[in-house]
Nucleic acid binder design. Structure first.
Lengths: 287, 287
DNA sequence: AGCTCTTATGAATCATTGA
DNA sequence: GTCAATGATTCATAAGAGC
């Protein structure tokens, strides 16, 4: 068994990714610096220039992603001047023009979002997780993210009466028969495209972009063990931590030197094998 | 006290609205026919032509809405060829160009969404509720949509059944009820921009566009009693029903003759005062 | 009346088949 | 080829029946 790699690099992903061969990664999952957020750390890209700033980088993402791979973009537009800014939806249109397929939009519902009150706006409790692909036929392992079935199964399956059997038989072929038998051995159900994760409140001395459960969920859904995961705006290393935990190789890139150090600190905790510059990547085609 | 009006008209809202003076309505809340959906009833606007179809109508909406009014648009893009179509986000950009402010995007989380399984997609459990305004200073009554929150609400209130709550209300003035009301008030919190409504499953013999709780929520949030509410794609009359229930005047327009009849049927049930063509609207400036 | 239990069904999506 | 019709499939909720 090959040892797992979790490689954190410092630099602009636009440049760093040029060192990688094409079609290398199985999944890209990231939470880029939002426009005008984290100004002190990222310089704060102006909303009006966000798309122009993003496109050269996503061009590299497109190159290094495998044909059956997936790109997950966690992002939310800011409110400016009492209005939602349009740079995110403009980015969607621009990415499609660049060659990406806009496959799906997941909603991350932040259950414990920051409290607050404004005169003309409620608390913002959700973010977009945009799914892009290079091909309509991408890898997806739905059974890996199933959740325990709800109350329904407990009440309904407990009493399988004669009516259920009759209804099953009589409605066979109706196009919407309920095949009760299918559920007998199941206690897991597939999720929807609304994800419920609480925002993390750990003492990491930095602003976590997303809770580790978020990259974990997408890594489980879109990759297998020993696959390669990329986070081009890795920040404190959450994505690499998730990948490592799940037995996937990962590369994290961030422009901030301080994040790099922080990543080391965090990853050491989970006993990652970290490899610095000069690491030789092997093509990962030996599945 | 003036009698409430709930006026259902048959026709294309693009034409019907020309009969109304400008700056008449306090709220427009609607769920337009989605592109290529309900083909048999609406003709099915092709996704590529959706924006062009919508703009002349929203131009009228802009005219008849009061300066401090709000326009709520419930919509969701379809998946076509394995991809999410972009007509909704293109519509957002076009509406801004038309003069609307894109103030907010609420998420309607459909807890009981349609079952199904597909190879590359999970169940779609959410829709957009886009908020547009003419001005940054719009009317909003946040305290009208507060929800119970906190430990007390979760444990004590949940143990009370629906009928118990009704009983509470009927005991208004008993002293005990008053105390409860005080507790309730203290435990009310403002909601977020994620709304949880189950899709309605009643036997109405028609496809309800949205559950009545959805227009109710926005009517409470953005209007006061005796205000005027418009639904230019009113369908079965859900919006007018909600407005009536809450003591607001309403106008509903739908192109389908059959919906008009159905609306009559539904509204009669709730003893609405319905007024046909020729109704004289009075300016509603006497607050 | 107030429970529990039963039942119908909703703005869906994709692969396959047939015209 | 292209397009339309068809089949199959992960539930949650509220109204209604029954007791």
């Amino acid at each position: 068994m090959r040892e797992l790699i979790a490689d954190i690099r410092q630099g602009d992903c636009r440049d760093v990714l040029k060192e990688f061969e094409g079609e290398f990664f199985d999944l890209i999952v990231t939470s880029p610096p939002y426009a005008d957020r984290r100004v002190k750390t990222y310089g704060g890209i102006h909303p009006d220039k966000y798309v122009d700033w993003f496109l050269p980088r996503s061009e590299e993402f497109l190159r290094v992603l495998k044909p059956g791979g997936t790109f997950i973009l966690n992002i939310k537009e800011k409110a400016e001047n009492g209005e939602r800014h349009t740079y995110v939806i403009e980015l969607i249109l621009a990415l499609r023009k660049q060659g990406w397929l806009w496959t799906e939009e997941f909603i991350w519902h932040k259950k414990n979002c920051y409290p607050g009150k404004w005169p003309n706006r409620f608390r913002d409790a959700w973010e977009r997780c945009l799914q892009f692909n290079k091909s309509r036929h991408f890898k997806m392992f739905q059974e890996k993210v199933r959740v325990p079935m709800g109350e329904w199964a407990n009440t309904r399956l407990k009493s399988l009466g004669k009516n259920d059997v009759v209804r099953f038989n009589s409605q066979a072929g109706s196009g919407f028969g309920k095949n009760i038998a299918n559920w007998l051995d199941r206690d897991l159900a597939y999720p929807t495209n609304v994800l419920h994760f609480a925002t993390e409140c750990s003492n990491k001395n930095h602003s976590a972009a997303f809770p580790i459960a978020l990259p974990e969920w997408f890594i489980k859904l879109f990759t297998q063990e020993n696959d390669w995961v990329l986070d081009p705006f890795v920040g404190s290393g959450t994505t690499c931590e998730a990948a490592q935990k799940l037995g996937r190789n990962s590369v994290g890139i961030d422009i901030m030197e301080e994040y790099k150090d922080l990543s080391y600190k965090n990853t050491k905790k989970s006993e990652l094998l970290l490899m610095e510059k000069g690491l030789k990547y092997e093509a990962n085609n030996s599945k």
